[in-house]
Design a protein around this nucleic acid. Structure first.
Length: 604
DNA sequence: ATAGGGTTAG
């Protein structure tokens, strides 16, 4: 009895509490109000009891409030129970339920509910319903369903609704159909900030960053509204994807003027942009001004600083853990990348184990790819091979993984492993051409010309051909294109070769190792046989640009030679090694390199 | 009356 007493007391207290709580609600409107503001599961549960006791549970309006309250407090199955108990759910009930599923990351179930509503009731959807249904298609990247719903938009006469059009634009661009998104956007008579943001984001996400920036310019000129934090994050992201530091700084200025520079999402986009444009110090400054950095903030700065290899990334990771911010799978991609770029293989291997043990994140092919790259760079090919074999990667992921291993084994002249990697790629019909070329190169490197030749003819026989990679530079309005290894088309060929060999010698003297674990000059990508001479198209282009410019004349760097971090590093090294100043222009900024430093690198 | 659209790290 002594044991039971506390229990009985507890039950009686609970009953008392229940009665007190319920008696607080005197009227239906009070209950509805309570449900609308409820953010805690308990408080929704109390109100549910009260609705039950008072019989208001049968009132459709109150029941909808209850259902929404459950959805807001992330109790989807309870919301579903409420819905199932309704005698006649109305349009709001259906729409809320669909929203619940979509917001919980189950868009397909949401679409199923919508289909059921159309089939089993005579309820006609309105703009609320269609906008969430369209966003379900967007989340599912299901353009087929999206187009069907677009048809329904026309049938129900909702094509003038801003919210519906915004959802449509977003759906099309998320399905990589920017053209259809643009058509919807153009059809809108009055475009909201949301519509502009969705369209700008669409261009940015589909590799058309310059169009995104032009559209933003148009918005700033002709739109009557000011950008919000959604739009600013999108535009900054477009600058990052283009490597356009100056445009990015202009956006930073806009964000400051609009009062969004302390918004954590905008700040995340900004620090990512600075890191990608080669200004890691600006990136760090933005990061340090964020009051409550999120896992996104830390991951962005870790990923951003990983390629600089100063150990900053790992320090930040430790700091993040001290602050009890839980890393996710992407964070660990950055951490492993940092280990790889700092040559900390053993530390990287430890992280590969601890990510599962300490944070329950199972390493996937992205992590394995980092580690294969990390081990491959320093010649620990057997371990890398073992890891690749143990991977559960699918076709696409496997192509990346085995491709990384292939490059590394070629670099370290491990023909045995190169052959295994090539076999995997060829068998899975992935990167077949590149695999053949590398395999052939691997044989050639070790002097096994017979096998190399056999592979070449096998390629010919199977109709496999590889387009040579190329880079290009624009000098004084002329564009020069450099194909990998094709020296006959290289202007001022001898001078270029001399410079490259001079560079190589001086780099070696300074302790840089071009061909193995130093990723700076050789961005490993399989090219034609000439590539064995180290004449990667990018290096050819840079060397040509360097010898072609008299002092004071600028080079304009195009596309894959844009002034991203890697390019900065290369020019810094060239200026240091050869002892000459060099001025480079990217889309709208000058960079002056002199004796190993760049005076435009950090503008603040 | 209650329900709806977009944004940041790989």
């Amino acid at each position: 009895m002594r044991l039971l007493n506390p229990l009985l007391q507890c039950i009686s207290e609970t009953r008392h509490l229940l009665q007190t709580k319920i008696s607080h609600f005197h009227s239906k409107s009070q209950l509805d109000h309570h449900l609308r503001n409820s953010t805690h599961p308990d408080s929704t549960a109390w109100a549910h009891c009260a609705l039950f006791k008072t019989g208001f549970i049968h009132d459709p309006y109150s029941a909808n409030h209850l259902q929404n309250s459950y959805i807001r407090t992330a109790q989807l199955s309870l919301a579903r129970n409420v819905f199932d108990e309704m005698r006649e759910p109305n349009l709001v009930s259906w729409t809320s339920l669909i929203t619940g599923y979509v917001k919980a990351g189950r868009p397909r179930t949401g679409l199923g509910v919508y289909g059921m509503m159309l089939r089993e009731t005579s309820i006609v959807p309105n703009s609320f319903t269609l906008s969430i249904v369209i966003s379900a298609c967007s989340a599912d990247a299901d353009v087929g369903n999206g187009k069907r719903v677009h048809g329904q938009v026309e049938i129900f006469g909702l094509q003038k609704e801003d919210v519906v059009c915004c959802a449509l634009v977003d759906m099309y661009v998320k399905c990589n159909d920017v053209g259809s998104g643009r058509r919807v956007f153009d059809s809108m008579s009055c475009r909201s900030v949301v519509a502009w943001a969705a369209m700008i984001s669409g261009y940015g996400q589909n590799g058309q960053g310059h169009v995104a920036l032009n559209l933003f310019r148009e918005f700033s000129w002709f739109g009557s509204e000011t950008p919000n934090h959604y739009m600013l994050a999108t535009v900054v992201n477009a600058c990052a994807s283009l490597g356009r530091l100056v445009s990015g700084k202009v956006c930073h200025g806009v964000a400051v003027r609009c009062g969004y520079d302390f918004n954590v999402v905008v700040a995340n986009a900004l620090l990512d942009m600075y890191a990608k444009c080669g200004s890691i110090r600006c990136s760090e400054k933005v990061f340090r001004r964020i009051e409550n950095p999120s896992v996104f903030s830390y991951t962005s700065i870790i990923v951003g600083s990983a390629k600089y290899g100063y150990g900053l990334a790992l320090e930040l990771f430790k700091e993040m853990l001290e602050k009890k911010i839980t890393p996710n799978a992407v964070t660990y991609v950055g951490v492993l990348h940092a280990c790889s770029h700092s040559g900390l293989a053993n530390e990287g291997l430890r992280y590969l184990t601890s990510m599962r043990q300490e944070h329950g994140i199972v390493p996937d092919s992205r992590h394995q790819n980092c580690v294969v790259d990390m081990l491959g760079r320093i010649g620990r090919l057997d371990e890398a091979y073992e890891l690749a074999q143990s991977s559960q990667a699918n076709m696409d992921q496997g192509a990346l993984l085995w491709g990384t291993l292939l490059s590394a084994s070629r670099l370290h002249k491990r023909v045995d492993i190169a052959v295994e990697a090539s076999k995997w790629l060829i068998a899975s019909k992935q990167q077949v051409a590149a695999a053949y070329v590398t395999m052939s190169n691997a044989y050639a490197v070790t002097g096994n010309w017979d096998n190399a030749g056999k592979l070449r003819s096998q390629m010919k026989h199977n109709g496999v051909s590889k387009e040579p990679g190329c880079s290009w530079v624009e000098i004084k309005d002329s564009v020069y294109i450099f194909y990998a290894g094709n020296l006959s088309s290289c202007p001022r060929r001898d001078e270029v070769l001399n410079l490259l060999s001079e560079l190589e010698t001086k780099l070696k003297q300074k302790g840089y190792s071009i061909s193995s674990n130093n990723h700076m000059l050789v961005d490993i990508e399989e090219e034609t046989t000439q590539e064995m001479l180290g004449l990667h198209s990018e290096r050819l282009a840079l060397a040509f640009a360097f010898i072609s410019i008299p002092r004071g004349v600028t080079i304009r760097v195009m596309k894959n030679l844009r002034m991203c971090t890697d390019c900065h590093v290369v020019f810094k090294m060239i200026s240091e090694v050869v002892g000459r100043d060099i001025v480079v222009r990217d889309v709208n900024r000058f960079h002056h390199f002199s004796n190993g430093s760049c005076t435009c690198g950090d503008f603040w």
